[in-house]
Structure formats: structure tokens, C-alpha cells
Design a protein around this nucleic acid. Structure first.
Length: 260
DNA sequence: CGGATTTGACCTGCGC
DNA sequence: GCGCAGGTCAAATCCG
């Protein structure tokens, strides 16, 4: 008995979708693995720090350093001991943009550039030039693991006010520190499940308006729902963003001491 | 022409 | 003491 061509086409379509989802799944798994490694390293560093009774974790850690060398724990400890008046933020930029320009509300004068050992991207050194004698410096380097982000380290405190016409104000060392992962919308960070809820509501409304009656075959409904979900997830890149934020949030909300 | 940027040289701290 | 890596200086160059 021949399989109807419409069914065959549908099956091929589903297979293609499945393949696409498997690829995305692999990418997400890789992302999760990277985040796990980072979390483990930071946890170890934190507990080591606590045991040695060094003053509590500083701003530098709350910016959790996604980009520093992961091969050696030696490089983590100095990060934890960043001076109290320094902070680190991540800024999303075009990977092709090599200008190291970050609009943070201040004027900066570049005074040096250096290629560091564990990052092929050059690190640029800036001094604040908005006011004479302002001691603030910043270092800007592209994140090795995610070229979309610039890692910006501020040192010192400004002795003048910010000029809002220059650009959006990023956290300065003198401001109160809040954990920021640039690129993740605040709403997603605040509630990573919000996207999923929105998606679910959309699906529900689509189904109710499309079918009209609630007496259709259960299997068809379920299948239709799965198709909708698969299509929505495959089409919308922000889903991966929301998922990554949710994973990150689960790490920060339920920290566990390392077992080793 | 003056200010900003580039870039090689130099300085400093740290580990071995 | 030596070598390495990060940070800074300053002369040369660029640009508006």
C-alpha cells in the first residue's frame, strides 16, 4: 500500500524540523557545558577564598568573569581580589568592530594596547579625559569565548560628573554594583520563564481561535501543539537567550559547594 | 595645528 | 638573577 504523498511530505518536514532542533540542542548543550565549567571554577575559587578568610567576594566576581583563562585557577584568584574600586562589565558589540569604543558616558583617551597571553584579541588601555587629573582607567578586551562581547574593566573613581550627551551610562566603580550580563534583556534576567509563559499563551490563543470547537481529535491537537512549539522554538533565536539566562539564573540561585 | 591614536620600547612585579 | 607577562610611556603618525 502506497503512502499518500501529503503524509510523506509532512513526514519529511517533521524530520527536517527534528534535525534543526537537534542542532540547536547540541549548541545549547555546548553552551551549558561552558557555563557549568565557569560556575565550577568560580565556586572553587570562592570557597577557597572563604577558607583563607580573605575579605568577602568583590564586585569583580559578581560580574562573573566569563572570558578569562579557564585553564589555570591561578588567574581566578587575582580576579577575586580586584580592588574595591574596580568593576567589570560585558558590553555587546559587533564582532567585526575592533574600535574598542564603549559609550559609557565618559570621554576616554587611549594610551596603550597590548596582546595578552591567553586572549588573541588585543587589550586596549584608556584613561578618563573628561576632567584633568581624573584617575579612572579602563581596559577593554574582546571576550575570547563570545566575540559578541567586550570585557570592560574600570579602575578608580571619577572626580567629576558624567556627561549624559556622550552616551549611556554603564556602571562605574563608584556606582553601586549590580550583576549585569549585557545582551540579556533585563526582563529575561528578572524572569527567565516569562518568555516561555508568553509563548504558551500565544499558542493557547492561536489554538482556540483556529479550531473554534474543542471536540477535535486529541492526537491531532497534541500533534498540532508540538508542531507549533517546534516551529516557534526553531524560528525564535531569543528562545536560546531566554534559556541561557534561565540556566545562569538557576546557577546563581542554587549555589552548591563543590564536591571535590 | 592641536588633539587623538598607534606602536615599539621601557618599567615593574612575579614565579621559577 | 632571569625570563615572562602586564601595564605605561612617549615619539611618530593620523585626522579633523
Amino acid at each position: 500500500m502506497d503512502v499518500p504523498s501529503s503524509v510523506k511530505d509532512k513526514a519529511e518536514g517533521v524530520e527536517a524540523e527534528l534535525e534543526q532542533l537537534q542542532k540547536e540542542n547540541a549548541a545549547l548543550r555546548l553552551m551549558l557545558q561552558v557555563m557549568r565549567n565557569k560556575y565550577k571554577m568560580l565556586s572553587e575559587a570562592y570557597f577557597r577564598e572563604s577558607n583563607s578568610q580573605v575579605p568577602t567576594i568583590c564586585r569583580g566576581l559578581t560580574r562573573f568573569d566569563l572570558c578569562e583563562d579557564q585553564h589555570s585557577h591561578k588567574n581566578i584568584i587575582p580576579q577575586l581580589q580586584l580592588a574595591a574600586n574596580s568593576s567589570q562589565v560585558f558590553v555587546e558589540t559587533e564582532p567585526r568592530d575592533e574600535s574598542h569604543i564603549v559609550k559609557d558616558g565618559f570621554q576616554w583617551r587611549k594610551y596603550g594596547q597590548k596582546v595578552t597571553k591567553h586572549n588573541p584579541f588585543p587589550r586596549a588601555y584608556f584613561r578618563c579625559s573628561m576632567a584633568p587629573g581624573c584617575p579612572v582607567k579602563k581596559k577593554v578586551q574582546r571576550c575570547m569565548e563570545d566575540k559578541n562581547f567586550l570585557m570592560v574593566t574600570y579602575e578608580g573613581q571619577h572626580n567629576h560628573e558624567v556627561n549624559p550627551s556622550i552616551g549611556q551610562s554603564l556602571p562605574s566603580p563608584s556606582s553601586s554594583a549590580t550583576t549585569s550580563i549585557s545582551g540579556f534583556p533585563n526582563s529575561v534576567l528578572d524572569n527567565p520563564l516569562r518568555y516561555a509563559i508568553d509563548l504558551d499563551l500565544n499558542l493557547s490563543s492561536e489554538n482556540s481561535s483556529g479550531n473554534g470547537n474543542g471536540n477535535d481529535d486529541d492526537y491531532n491537537n497534541k500533534r498540532s501543539m508540538e508542531d507549533h512549539i517546534a516551529a516557534s522554538l526553531a524560528k525564535d533565536p531569543s528562545f536560546t537567550l531566554a534559556l541561557a539566562a534561565a540556566v545562569a539564573r538557576s546557577f546563581t540561585e542554587h549555589p552548591k559547594p563543590p564536591t571535590n
